[in-house]
């Protein structure tokens, strides 16, 4: 039987990062995806697209918790619904079908909050993928795990390094390499600034 978590436990795991965060992410997705997809697909969206929206919503939820934007005024489930709905509205807006959706809103709408949602555009995704792909695989793995707040020990164990210090050196070496790639690529810096602002 899969383990179950309270909202408080999930929030702690998301903030802790690393493996704990991934476990929380998987739990939230498995727990709510069918429900949220059913909620979204009552209106216009096909199942595939709704699942994609829920995946983006879970990522936004992780960022919201990690960056302190989620203030705990509602349950995580309500927060996830609110994000999913906003992401969905954004897609409908692009398709020009937002009005039809708004007219069909009914009393079963679950949320009244409106969290800000951020999701990478296609050119941002490909820009980020391209520059990360220029690193050696090992460097990419170490840096991404470090950035996801895996501990040095976890990284050493997962990637087969003999101890924490080796990982620390590797991380610094790879970070310098990536920094130089960013230095030489004004396009990627612009893309990062656009995202931050």
């Amino acid at each position: 039987m899969a383990k179950s978590y309270s909202d408080q436990e999930l929030i702690e795991r998301i903030k802790a990062g690393g493996h704990a965060c991934e476990e929380a992410m998987g739990f939230i997705y498995k727990q709510y995806v069918d429900e949220v997809v059913a909620y979204l697909t009552r209106r216009q969206f096909d199942g595939e697209e709704a699942r994609d929206v829920v995946q983006d919503a879970v990522i936004n939820l992780l960022m919201g918790v990690q960056q302190g934007k989620f203030l705990g005024n509602s349950s995580l489930k309500t927060y996830l619904y609110a994000i999913s709905k906003n992401l969905w509205l954004r897609r409908l807006r692009r398709k020009g079908t937002e009005d039809a959706y708004i007219q069909k809103q009914d009393e079963t709408d679950v949320d009244h909050t409106s969290p800000e949602v951020l999701i990478m555009e296609e050119d941002q995704r490909s820009g980020v993928s391209e520059i990360l792909a220029k690193l050696k695989e090992r460097c990419r793995e170490v840096l991404l795990m470090w950035s996801q707040k895996y501990s040095m020990k976890e990284i050493a164990q997962t990637l087969g390094y003999s101890n924490d210090q080796v990982v620390r050196n590797k991380k610094n070496h790879c970070m310098k390499e990536l920094k130089e790639k960013v230095r030489n690529n004004p396009h990627i810096r612009q893309l990062i600034h656009d995202w931050v602002n």
């Binding site: 995704r125 980020v128 520059i131 990419r140 991404l144 970070m175 990536l178 920094k179 995202w195």
Partner: peptide, 13 residues
Amino acid sequence: DTHQLLALGNQLT
């Protein structure tokens, strides 16, 4: 910016 780039990379992961 390099740290921020990795944060974006995490979203892809």
